[in-house]
Write a protein that binds this DNA or RNA. Structure first.
Lengths: 231, 231
DNA sequence: ACAAAAGTGTTGGAGATACACCCATGA
DNA sequence: TCATGGGTGTATCTCCAACACTTTTGT
């Protein structure tokens, strides 16, 4: 009855390269230790919440520590608390080496975040010996229940794209309507009609054309747009 | 750095009486102790998660314990983890008397649930010395951050009403289209046109007319309907 | 000249909105 | 007979889906 939990935050960071959605993964290693290749897992960047820290605050701190990504959009989407979240032997081993209370049950709060890959290059640090983008369509087996967490994050993203204007976080500051459309198509996983899509964009607040065109492309250069948050 | 958290679940239970939305509250008392009236708070039914228990499971168990409501719709909507969630003196005092580790920071997972008030009469037990319905429009100051939790639960409910067919959980087994419309109006907080609303219902799966009419009302009795979950 | 993506309008159908009157019952 | 909510249809408008050709650039 003397329940004590560890609390963590896991960030599903989506990036967009103009082609496909990617997820930011870290390699769970130990500082200064070379591990056998089958002894670690890839994972979503997450860590324990500090005793005196709010959840959103923790999510930002942890993401910044592990990937040097700062001031980005982060949204809590769900708690994951199955008692058997940590079920693989090598996950348990890793916890034993890095956590003060490795046996403790840990409940995690899932956040998703969006990043324009062009604008940010993540730099690993701390216990993440590498941080890298991985195409969503090609995810490996991840640590703990992180495959579920990514899947749930994607579902939430899909729902949010329609209502909020979250999506612009994934684009560089200057973008073409083609990029915007491709991104919609990828997130919603369905094809959209170009002319209809452009009509909708015209009706949309905040998408403003610049006095600038694409350069260095091997086709007709597109008009560049930017997004200014309404109000 | 030796973080240990308590983890709880709080259930925002919405009920509908045909007139307005209500929320189920418990009076946080101590078993067998008469407390001065200003020494307790009303609260949403919640309690600590057991060490070996899943979150959804805990939500059901706790709700059942505190209110004798079983097998009802429950949906996780958000975690609340501000470090200062417990800031009132009397909340702290209450925790001291009832919790093994009253000083521990507690993070709570918010669930909302829906109940047809006509079909369920909650019965209090355990440390809730009373469970009662309270109109949403007339909420008192609640314990901890429970006012925020209720507000967030309502927002989530609003979003879910359109997509899912959650709403029928709030109605008795047999209901009139008038009741269904009023419920929509209350949840969405806007007036709907009767004829248009009825057209939409006709297009909706699962709403089937019964061979029965309202009785004992002082106006033209309405056709009764029931909801059968599609498939 | 060719390849590759950008850009541009119209039409038909479905769904949303707005609107006003008669009906059945209990008191 | 009156008060109360139940029940019904039509016209208009807006939004959505379907559809094909010309333009501009780099190679």
């Amino acid at each position: 009855m003397n329940a004590a939990f560890d609390l963590s935050v896991d960030n599903v960071v989506f990036g967009f390269d103009g082609e496909q959605l990617q997820v930011l993964l870290i390699r769970q290693g130990l500082p200064g230790v070379d591990m056998a290749p089958d002894r670690f897992h890839m994972a979503v960047p997450g860590d324990l919440v500090f005793p005196e820290e709010g959840l959103d605050q923790a999510a930002h701190r942890i993401l910044s520590n592990l990937t040097s990504l700062d001031g980005i959009y982060l949204k809590q989407f769900r708690a994951f608390g199955a008692p058997d979240r940590v079920f693989e032997e090598k996950d348990r081993e890793w916890l034993t080496r890095i956590r003060p209370h490795p046996e403790r049950r840990v409940v995690t709060i899932g956040y998703y975040s969006l990043v324009a890959m062009a604008d940010y290059t993540p730099r690993p640090s701390s216990f993440a010996s590498r941080a890298e983008w991985c195409p969503l369509s090609d995810l490996p087996r991840l640590a703990f229940d992180h495959n579920d967490i990514v899947k749930a994050g994607l579902l939430q993203l899909r729902e949010d794209v329609a209502r909020e204007s979250v999506i612009f976080e994934l684009l560089p500051e200057k973008f073409t309507l083609g990029q915007l459309q491709r991104l919609h198509e990828i997130i919603l996983d369905k094809d959209l009609d170009k002319r209809n899509f452009r009509k909708n964009v015209k009706r949309m607040e905040g998408v403003v054309p610049l006095d600038e065109k694409q350069e260095g492309v091997l086709h007709k250069p597109a008009q560049l747009y930017t997004y200014v948050r309404p109000q």
